[in-house]
Design a binder for these strands. Sequence first.
RNA 1: GGUGAGGUGCCUGAGAGGCCGAAAGGAACAGUUUGCUAAACUGUCGUACGGGUAACUGUACCGCGGGUUCGAAUCCCGCCCUCACCGCCA
Length: 424
Amino acid sequence: MLQLPVLREQKEEVIARLAVKNIDARATVEQILSLDTEKRKNQTELESIQAEQNAIAKQIGELFRSGKKDEADDLKNKSTALKESSKSLEERVVSLEQEMNDILVTLPNTPSPLVPKGKTPEENEVVYLSTDKLPELPADAKPHWELTSQYDIIDFELGNKITGAGFPVYKGKGAKLQRALINFFLDQADKAGYYEVQPPIMINAASGFGTGQLPDKEGQMYHVTEDGFYLIPTAEVPVTNIFRDEIVKGESLPIKYTAYTPCFRREAGSYGAHVRGLNRLHQFDKVEIVQIAHPDKSYEILEDMRSYVAGLLHLLELPFRTLRLCGGDMSFASALTYDMEVWSAAQQRWLEVSSVSNFETFQANRLKLRYREANGKPQLAHTLNGSALALPRIVAAMLENNQTPEGIRIPKALIPYTGFDLIN
RNA sequence: GGUGAGGUGCCUGAGAGGCCGAAAGGAACAGUUUGCUAAACUGUCGUACGGGUAACUGUACCGCGGGUUCGAAUCCCGCCCUCACCGCCA
């Protein structure tokens, strides 16, 4: 959620920046500001009436104590009259504020000045390419969904039976590979100074609102209606919400957390060949990294997180590129996002495996997540997060790129975790 | 699921219609003293939103939402949550 004072003081700047996300926000911003002006006008009036009521109530108390009941009765009547007008004013203020907030939460975050203009994924800016020549596979190379059944390591049909499409069953070395990747990613995060947590994988509505999934993406989450909970689409939600309504000490920043969780996404509206196999699942595993940062440091930290994720991909020996997302391809809450895509040789396409974002104060404002320097006023912190990493497409790329006549080669860094160097 | 107790500031915890934005202790911060540390003493110490160049000032907030009252942390109603015990159970 954008900060109202920023909207008031830098209206033109906000409108110009939202234009990078291809949004013409002028009418909305002006509506918010006029509601705000109206609200404040009513609020000032209301508060002066309340001040008078409070003064009268105090006087009545004193009159009662000194036995002047008649005078007290006069004041009572006066106060009752005031109550009428304060009550209606209060309703007005509350409804103006509500109306204003309802509109304010629909505005996406303003992109950072680094964000390139653009509408489609093709206009994302390639900022890094891990290799100048992409691996080439023999003509009979297979896509991963054929390899998974050839080696019987991931069973999509069995998942269909148990749950439905997008819920695969990992088997044998396939299951062990999952476990190996999760442990590998967690160990790496630990080494990089991230504190490991295991959060709930169901969240309440307040948490969903805090990180911006609600009300914007309600339809993308599985909803447990009986209890009002949602299955998490990413560990970002429960981990960042650890700090909801918190004022942390300035010197404790940056706070670095990591968590492994399953993630659940309804992916309503997705279809076609690009959802085949592991490319798009309803349930998948991911290790997430989250940082709570000082506003002056958050962009430096974003670069750190980006190079951390790149390091993981190098260790896994996967060819990848890093994109700086253009305005049109960015998420609602993000100010700057880097996507990491690995090259899937058999599919001849790039697969997104990580998204690293700085949300600046956008989430913190919803979360009421603040920090305080010694004796200072509370300030909104910046929040950042990134996948480090999401498993399915890593597995897809690994299977496809590393296929040999003998079997699937496991990258060196992973062998201590899998306990085998070949899937055959 | 049943029964009982309870939700007050960073924490513990008092407060039971007006003198309460809230005692007391602890923590934290600043200072004094001691050679350092520790201790002792003194002071500061909630948040949000308004108004004001500012000093300052107003309002709201004691789990959430309503109600009673001139006046509610305190009384009434509804909801949520936590804890304890019982039941069930990995």
